[in-house]
């Protein structure tokens, strides 16, 4: 039962966990009850009703914001250099490019941008969202570490990451911590990449990767915004679902 309760947000467990346990002590859970608990956990995440943990002090937000802004800037620059370097690298004896340098740049970029977006994009003061942000940051680091090693991960990172970044930007905008234009620019960059790749693939060209450089621009804009201290200087209050 405690396993099922762990599906609920921490703030919810803190408020109602002991009550659920007391209820189930008196009235052992049937299979339908277990399903209802799972459904309830989903609802508790999608439509939070219990206010989350206390928001960190403003000073801490400001310091973290500066650090995350710097990471976004490093990530954006590393991404642009990483992708651009693919085209200037020397070909080896087999006619293939030595992508090691590019991969290191892209891995660094994915880690930095992922951490910055994950933390900033999900920050609104509520514990569940912060946990999601940290999960996304962790995935980005794992992706970055495996990027140079496993070829499919490289492809996923190169083409999937722009989409993930755009989704995070949209989420951050909905949370009220990113300005609307950031979501628009990020989404446009992701669609430009996908559209360009599709068009180039039909035309039989292999230059579609050029478009991937534009993905480096949104993190730079985010960094500029974060370093100015406006992105989360006034974080939105914990979001509670109206229903």
């Amino acid at each position: 039962m405690s396993v099922l309760l762990r599906l609920y947000p921490a703030a919810w467990r803190e408020r109602h966990g002991d009550e659920v346990a007391a209820l189930l002590e008196e009235h052992p859970a049937s299979t339908l009850d277990l399903l209802d608990l799972i459904r309830g956990a989903l609802d508790a995440h999608l439509h939070p009703q219990v206010p989350g943990a206390a928001r960190p002090p403003d000073k801490e937000i400001t310091v973290n914001q500066r650090l995350l802004g710097a990471m976004a800037a490093i990530g954006g620059i590393a991404w642009i250099i990483g992708v651009a370097s693919i085209f200037v690298l020397q070909r080896d004896a087999f006619g293939d490019r030595n992508l090691t340098l590019a991969m290191i740049g892209l891995a660094l970029a994915i880690a930095c941008i992922g951490i910055a977006l994950g933390e900033l994009g999900t920050r609104d003061g509520s514990a569940p969202r912060l946990r999601t942000g940290r999960a996304i940051s962790t995935v980005s680091v794992v992706l970055a570490l495996t990027l140079p090693v496993i070829w499919p991960v490289f492809l996923f990172g190169l083409f999937g990451f722009p989409i993930m970044a755009a989704m995070l930007a949209i989420r951050g905008t909905r949370n009220g911590v990113f300005p609307g234009w950031f979501a628009v620019v990020s989404t446009a960059a992701a669609f430009a990449v996908l559209g360009g790749i599709g068009i180039d693939a039909q035309a039989g060209k292999d230059e579609s990767l050029v478009l991937l450089t534009v993905v480096g621009l949104p993190p730079l804009l985010l960094a500029w915004q974060a370093l100015r201290g406006t992105a989360a200087a006034n974080p939105a209050p914990p979001e509670l679902d109206p229903a």
Partner: peptide, 14 residues
């Protein structure tokens, strides 16, 4: 069910 019961209680309380 417990999920519905406490989901409703949380809403009513809020």
């Amino acid at each position: 069910g417990p999920g519905t019961l406490f989901g409703t209680i949380a809403r009513l309380e809020r």
